[in-house]
């Protein structure tokens, strides 16, 4: 992920959090890595939630294959207080919206659709940049000594 797109994706998450009256918004890679977040995430174990959500989406994808369906693009979990709306964005990332009685499934769905389109465009941009080889440079700077230092007891 490039710093500029990372910043733009974070701002899409923040806007979605506001427009959907959500408790929190998370964007997660399909492999379970958290990418961006907005809202009340302080008390949430984002790392665990990301990993489990990615597992959930992967399992649902497995079910869709068995049923010869295309990916199921969204899921909804209804809780007593908190509800979870999960959407696959451009087949690349998972957008999770946590919300409560301050919002509604209809509103969340509506706002997610727009945010997902914006994110899909940003992913496209990232893919183009990556293909053009204008990658971030931190990895190039790492030396053998840096790696060894990490493992010194």
């Amino acid at each position: 992920m490039f710093p500029e797109e990372q910043r733009q994706i974070s701002s899409v998450c923040q806007r979605l959090h506001r427009d959907a009256n959500a408790k929190a918004v998370l964007l997660i890679g399909r492999d379970g890595q958290p990418i961006a977040e907005a809202g009340e995430v302080g008390e949430i174990d984002v790392t665990s939630l990301s990993s489990l959500t990615a597992g959930n989406v992967a399992a649902t994808g497995g079910i869709s294959k068995i049923l010869r369906e295309k990916d199921f693009t969204s899921q909804f979990h209804e809780g007593e207080k908190t509800h979870v709306h999960i959407t696959l964005v451009a087949g690349r990332a998972i957008l999770v919206v946590l919300f409560d009685e301050r919002s509604s499934l209809g509103l969340v769905r509506l706002r997610v659709r727009k945010a997902a389109e914006e994110m899909a465009r940003l992913f496209e941009q990232v893919a183009k940049k990556a293909a053009a080889g204008t990658g971030p440079s931190i990895l190039n700077e790492i030396t053998d000594a840096d790696i060894d230092k990490l493992f010194n007891d």
């Binding site: 992920m1 710093p3 990895l139």
Partner: peptide
């Protein structure tokens, strides 16, 4: 796939 987050 590894993921590098420049903001965090």
């Amino acid at each position: 796939m590894s993921f590098i987050n420049y903001s965090s």
